[in-house]
Design a protein around this nucleic acid. Sequence first.
DNA 1: GAAATAATATAGCCAATGCTATTTTTCAAT
DNA 2: ATTGAAAAATAGCATTGGCTATATTATTTC
Lengths: 160, 160
Amino acid sequence: MSQHENIGHDAETGLIDANAQVESFRQTRNNRRTELVEDYVELIADLLEDGGEARQVDIAQRLGVAQPTVAKMLKRLGAEGYIQQRRYRGIFLTDAGRQLAELCRERHQIVESFLCSIGVSAETARIDAEGMEHHASPETLEAFKRFLIQTTSSRIAGEA
Amino acid sequence: MSQHENIGHDAETGLIDANAQVESFRQTRNNRRTELVEDYVELIADLLEDGGEARQVDIAQRLGVAQPTVAKMLKRLGAEGYIQQRRYRGIFLTDAGRQLAELCRERHQIVESFLCSIGVSAETARIDAEGMEHHASPETLEAFKRFLIQTTSSRIAGEA
DNA sequence: GAAATAATATAGCCAATGCTATTTTTCAAT
DNA sequence: ATTGAAAAATAGCATTGGCTATATTATTTC
Ligand SMILES: [Mn+2]
Ligand SMILES: [Mn+2]
Ligand SMILES: [Mn+2]
Ligand SMILES: [Mn+2]
């Protein structure tokens, strides 16, 4: 069955094109593989900028996980070249780490602000953005930004 | 350090409240644990409605994974009460399964339509929605729906 | 109805992400 | 300098979600 290719949607309940669907699922699985790295690097950058140091206990407390979980992930971050670790010293970001952190922080900010701008409460926006950010493509981020600019200028112009 | 509680954002680069942040991360981790179940159930419902049967090979092809991967997940779906499986027969949804599928399908549709409505291309909307849907809370979905209704009525009223 | 094909089941492997319990190291106080 | 507390490292375990290779079971076809 389903030998007849359907391009795009057909009717209401019909299946979308198989190749298109598999592409979506693959991309989503790919995004999932980097979610954690992104959140760690972003958080480490925040901690470094705020207090000057990013310790495992701080990271663990902020993420709500146990310290050995953080220790293990930090090894991965080190192996992937995002941080430098010296035993019993704090964590530092490499150039690559700082670069990724900046990207993630911007993206996160755009998503969260966007949600607020369409009427989502600050608390819910904070929660939802933490997950959604990792699946927002550059194109979607551009759309979010356009929207933010529009509503900002509308508000300045004094619209309802 | 960081014994002084900061409620909400402080300044530009400052850290948000630790309790708030941990709540976001926990919620996001929670959502992640159900993502796959949701996608499977939604896909099975689509296959059943379209061709009348949902076979492992079809599911595997649509998801872009191997058949044994699907077989394993179907055991989980069965254990969680979403499907009924008879060896070498197709998959069927239980009442709980149909209910979950309906919820997921609506949510997915809202997210995807919303992205399109703010100017994201159909292809990108399809891809991004596949991941973002699992992190959209009821409140955010309501905001998306409000926006969809607004832009629909604006278009009907003939705005630019 | 026997053979070929297709679908499913099963075994065994791996990587990622979490946990608890324990040991080791560093740091701070006395 | 010793000691006590805090932080980090390590060991060992569980679950989830992937894979390949292979064995079973149904279904088609001849
Ligand atoms: Mn983030
Ligand atoms: Mn995040
Ligand atoms: Mn979906
Ligand atoms: Mn999905």
